[in-house]
Simulated assay, not measured.
Amino acid sequence: MIIGVPQEVKNNEYRVGLTPGNVSGLCKQGHSVLIQRGAGEQIGLSDETYRIAGATLINSAAEVFHKAEMIVKVKEPQAQECAMLREDQILFTYLHLAPDPKQTKALIDSGATCIAYETVTAMNGALPLLAPMSEVAGRMSIHAAASHLEKSHGGLGVLMAGVPGVSPAKVVILGGGVVGRNALQIAVGMGADICIFDKDIDRLRQIDALYGNRVRTFYSDSLLIEQEVREADVVVGAVLLPGGAAPKLVTREMVKKMKTGAVILDVAIDQGGCFETSKPTTHADPTFLVDGVLHYCVANMPGAVARTSTFALTNATYPYVEALANRGVIQALSIDHHLRNGLNVHKGFLTSQPVAQAQKLDFVLAEEFFVA
Rank of each mutant, 00 (worst) to 15 (best):
C82Q: 12
L85Q: 02
L85V: 04
R86C: 07
R86W: 01
E87M: 07
D88E: 15
D88Y: 01
Q89F: 11
Q89N: 10
I90S: 00
L91N: 07
T93I: 10
L95V: 10
L97I: 08
L97N: 08
P101M: 08
P101R: 09
A106E: 13
I108M: 13
D109Y: 11
T113R: 05
T113M: 06
T113D: 03
C114A: 12
E118W: 07
V120M: 10
V120S: 06
T121D: 02
T121F: 08
T121I: 04
A122Q: 13
A122I: 05
M123C: 08
N124K: 12
A126F: 10
L130M: 12
L130S: 09
L130W: 09
L130G: 08
A131N: 12
M133S: 08
M133W: 09
S134K: 09
E135C: 07
E135V: 13
S141H: 10
H143D: 12
H143S: 12
A144N: 05
H148I: 03
H148N: 13
L149N: 04
L149K: 01
K151W: 05
G154F: 11
L156K: 13
L156C: 04
L156F: 07
L156T: 00
V158R: 07
G162Q: 00
V163P: 00
G165T: 04
S167Q: 12
A169G: 08
G176H: 05
V178E: 08
R181D: 03
A183Y: 07
L184P: 08
Q185I: 01
I186D: 09
G189I: 04
I194E: 09
I196H: 10
F197C: 02
D200R: 14
I201K: 11
R203Q: 15
R203T: 15
R203G: 09
L204T: 06
R205V: 13
I207D: 08
N213V: 10
R214Q: 13
V215C: 03
V215G: 04
V215I: 08
R216L: 12
T217L: 01
F218L: 12
Y219L: 13
S222A: 15
E226A: 15
E226M: 06
